[in-house]
Write a protein that binds this DNA or RNA. Structure first.
Length: 167
DNA sequence: TAGGCCATCTGGTCCT
DNA sequence: AGGACCAGATGGCCTA
């Protein structure tokens, strides 16, 4: 596993700070992209739908870039929150996104197995907790046999171990 | 240097 | 109409 502490990236960003520093570069970048995409009939058609001039288009683009950045930041925060909830992961060994999702999935499966084995396959009060509750109940009913549960637990611990060793 | 991971930009599509 | 969401493209950083 690699250590994923990365330095700052140098990009054509329009972060509040960066935008002031690299406005010229940014505009240049936008113009280049514009040149590249000028030939696309799809894009030409899409633009024909709107009567934006190039200034409008540019400022709209910048605004939507900013929104997209914020959206991705939110998504990354959610990933971080998920990382913090998965046990046995050292803070300095940051999981990648795909690792986080895979580990979380297996963690949930192993918890499900644990719950099932503790309750002998019966989950009291789940049925009565509304439509989502009954769905959940059905899901639990479809859970694997004991030997398969063991397998899921094993899979989860193996994964944790391999992530830790890989760092 | 190649490959993995990531942030950002972008245009298209969906949703409100 | 405008914002949210998505997926592809691009390029930087890092490690083996």
């Amino acid at each position: 596993m690699k250590t994923k502490t990365k330095g700052k990236k140098r990009k054509f960003t329009v972060d509040k700070e960066a935008s002031r520093l690299s406005e010229e570069e940014l505009v240049k970048c936008l113009r280049q992209k514009e040149k590249r995409s000028r030939g696309s009939s799809k894009i030409v058609a899409a633009r024909a739908k709107h009567s934006w001039n190039s200034k409008d288009r540019e400022s709209r683009r910048l605004e939507s870039n900013e929104r997209e950045r914020q959206r991705m930041h939110k998504l990354n925060n959610a990933f971080q929150a998920l990382r913090e909830v998965i046990p046995h992961v050292r803070a300095e060994n940051k999981l990648s996104k795909i690792e986080t999702l895979t580990l979380a999935k297996n963690y949930i499966k192993s918890l499900t197995s644990t719950i099932l084995s503790m309750s002998n396959g019966h989950l009291p009060d789940i049925e009565g907790s509304g439509p989502s509750g009954s769905k959940l109940y059905q899901h639990y009913q479809q859970q694997p046999r004991e030997d398969e549960r063991e397998e899921q637990l094993k899979k989860y611990s193996t994964q944790i171990q391999s992530f830790s060793e890989g760092s």
